[in-house]
Design a protein around this nucleic acid. Sequence first.
DNA 1: AGATTGGTTCGAAATTATTCGAACCATCAG
DNA 2: CTGATGGTTCGAATAATTTCGAACCAATCT
Lengths: 121, 121
Amino acid sequence: MTSENTELSHPGRNDLRLTDVLFALSDPERLAIVRQLAGGPLEMAQCHLSDPSIPKSTKSHLMKVLREAGIIRNEPFGRGRRLSLRYHDLEARFPGLIASVLSACGVESDAGQPGSPAGKP
Amino acid sequence: MTSENTELSHPGRNDLRLTDVLFALSDPERLAIVRQLAGGPLEMAQCHLSDPSIPKSTKSHLMKVLREAGIIRNEPFGRGRRLSLRYHDLEARFPGLIASVLSACGVESDAGQPGSPAGKP
DNA sequence: AGATTGGTTCGAAATTATTCGAACCATCAG
DNA sequence: CTGATGGTTCGAATAATTTCGAACCAATCT
C-alpha cells in the first residue's frame, strides 16, 4: 500500500503571527532546537534536546509549537521526519528578526540558509 | 515628608535573558505597550491599553513583566510614573532584535531613541 | 507477516501565567 | 490634615502551557 506518511499542517507565510513566533522562541528548549536547525535541515532523530531522557511525546510537542508558529517545517523523510528552519519565510515576513535572534543566541551567521544574514558577500 | 517614591528593581543590561525578552514581547497587549514607548518615554497614565476597562492591577502586572524582562524602565515621576523603552540596553545586548520587532509590528523607525535604526542621518 | 524504529496524538496531572479586587503607599491639591 | 489621583502588591480564581505515558500509525527490515 502506498499510503503517504502523515503530512502535518503548516501555516502559510502570510499567516505567521509575530506574537506566536516570539512565544515559540521564548522557550530555551525550543530555541535550542532552532539553533540546531540554523545550520540546515536535520532529521528529527538527529535533533537532540538538552536532556536526552526527555520522552518523545514531549519532543514532539516542542516541535508542534514551533511548527504551528511557522518557525520550522516538519516533513516526512524516509522512515522518519526532516526538520528545517523556515528562514526564508520568516525573513520575508519579519525582516531581520530571525537573524537577530540567532545571532543573539550565539549562532555564527554562516551558511545554512539561502539569503542568510550578512557576513560573507 | 520626603519619603522617596517606590524605586522598582530593574535587571542590569548584562542580565537580560533572550528568552525572557522574547516571552515578554510575545503577548499582544505587552507588545502594544512597547509600540507606544517606541516613540519615546510616556507617563504611565498616558499609556493606554487596547481595552480601557482593564483594571489597573492588570495593567501594573503587564508593566511588571516587561520591566523584569528588562524591556522597559519604570521610574517615579511626579505623582505617577514614567515608562521608557530600554532601547539602548536591548540593542547593546541583542543587536537588531528590538528594531526588527518594532518594524515587524508597524513602528516607523523614526526618532524616539538614541541610536535608533537607520533612516535619518 | 511480524518485529523494530521513529514519530504523532490523546488524556490527565502538574506547573506556570493571567486576571482582578482589595488593601496599601506616595504625591499633590485644598 | 483630608481627599483625590496614580500605581504597586497580595491572594485567590481561572486559564493556558508543559509534561508524560499509553495507544496508535507509517516505513523499513527480516
